[in-house]
Amino acid sequence: MNIFRLAGDMTHLFSVLVLLLKIHTIKSCAGISLKTQELYAIVFATRYLDIFTNHISPYNTIMKLIFLGSSFSIVWYMRYHKIVRRSYDKDQDTFRHYILILPCLILALLINEKFTFKEVMWTFSLYLEAVAILPQLVLLQRTRNIDNLTGQYVFLLGAYRALYIVNWIYRYFTEDHFVHWITWVCGLVQTLLCADFFYYYFQSWKNNMKLQLPA
């Protein structure tokens, strides 16, 4: 494993921890899109179907368990926890996320590496992950005033995917391993979706001002 992959995994892990911290300690999920969180739960559930059959390393298995456990518990908190759910911006979080699922599924059935159940599900999870941030970005745009933890969450999530791209480039040159073009396209789309947010995030950081997105 190279440093970029590790850094990518760590930013991904931190993004989840930041979110859990916000939910756990402040008992608030204000500014967080439940739609996006539900999509991530689906992403991990469909991607890690091989968790018990395809053993890579203890590291991989543990991380998979963390991502599965955290994504489902975040959804649970936002839906059912009697204090946390009150802070959920339900009226603002109106992106119809199910309309993302069907096109991703059809695309995975048409464009995949191998037409097997596990492989199609894996590809579906890649397509879905690429667009899963959309409801969150729409919610940020609507609420405009973004608290620190929410801003950091989205930033870390974007950084994770950007670092994975560097990791693929690195692996391409150092190992014979090359990532399938499907993965490349999804990773690029996902990172580009966050690029606009990155711009405003760095602006606010540079000027030491509260993060605000333009109307």
Partner: peptide, 10 residues
Amino acid sequence: PTGGNLHDEL
């Protein structure tokens, strides 16, 4: 050496 996805990433 692989032409495809090793699925060794998260």
